[in-house]
Every structure is written in C-alpha cells, then in structure tokens.
Amino acid sequence: MENLIILHILLVFMIIGAIITIEIRNMLSAVIAVGAVGFMLSVQFLFLGAPDIAITQVIVEILSLIILIRATINVDNVAIERKEEIIFSNRITLIFIGVILIFAWTAFHALPTFGEPSMRVSQFYLIHGLQEVGATNFVTSVILDFRAYDTFGEAVVLFTSISGAFAILRRWKKEQHKDFLRIDREH
C-alpha cells in the first residue's frame, strides 16, 4: 500500500511540474522543468515494476533535454503573451478540458480495475517464453522475438525522423536561392 501512496504523490508533483513548465516565462526554466517531470516519471516506472523502461526513460530524457536546450539557448528567451485575446480563449479551453475530464471519469469505469490486469495474451508469453525463446527477461523476449516486427517498424520510424531532422538542419550551398527569396519578399 505504501507503493500506491508514493505513486499518488509523484503524480501530483508531476502535474505541478507540468503546470510550471507551461506557465513560466523564461524558456530555459520551462525546458528544465519538463526534464524534472520526465525524471519523476522514470522513478514511477521503477515503482510500477518496469526497470527496463526506467533506464530507457532516463537516457531518452537526458538526450531530449540537450536537444531542447539547443533550441532555446541563444534566442529570445521570454515567452510571448498578449493579454486581451488570451483570457477569452483560456476560458473556453478550460471549460472544454473540464467536460473532457467528466466524460473520462465515466469512461474509466469500463477499464479493468487498477491492480488486476486482463492478461489474456501476456499469459501465453509468460508460460511459453522460457522454453521458446530462452530469455529470462520477458520484456526483451517480447520485443525481440514475439513482436520483432513491431521493433523493426520502430527502427524504420526512428531512422525516418532522424534523417528528416538532418535534411531540415543541413546547410544548403545554394545561398543564391536564399537571396532571390529575400528580394522577392522586399518587393
């Protein structure tokens, strides 16, 4: 039961960190606050019996922190806000989020109750995994053997997105082209 109390406390702190992230004006502080949310998520994975995911989350969190700091350093660091429009759209968005939360409260009754998962598929993996694959870590036996095609698809998506990022950030040699565009905009 102590486990569950720790989970609740960590989730409340994650929500507070997320609110700080989206309301603080300095962008560098916002990026660091979202890093704090990610590390708390990794601690939660440890308590939920998922050590592999906790390790992966820490590594990915550090890398994404570096990428986001690269985006926000050396540029204007202050968030843009204009008062008149924002109050109106804020209220409408908050009302709709409240309605969605009420509907979610009724929808969550249809899920299996917390702590008693329906393991119709996973039961098979747990029973036959040791003989068929031979790995004692069942998570790796699922990603690398039973569901290897999913992992292959993930590798394809990862390669596509990283090569897309490189293609966007690459310095093209055609500086003339850029000059043409600038002249076009001036006239």
């Binding site: 995911i53 992966t56 990915v60 998570v139 569901r147 999913d150 992992t151 998506v157 990862l158 997105s161």
Partner: peptide
C-alpha cells in the same frame, strides 16, 4: 512494457 519501450524511443525521434 515492451510496446512503451519502443514508444519512448520514437518520442525522442
């Protein structure tokens, strides 16, 4: 757990 493991890495990309 196995599916979230792939989802986290895709999130980084």
């Amino acid at each position: 757990q196995a599916l979230v493991l792939t989802s986290i890495v895709i999130g980084l990309g």
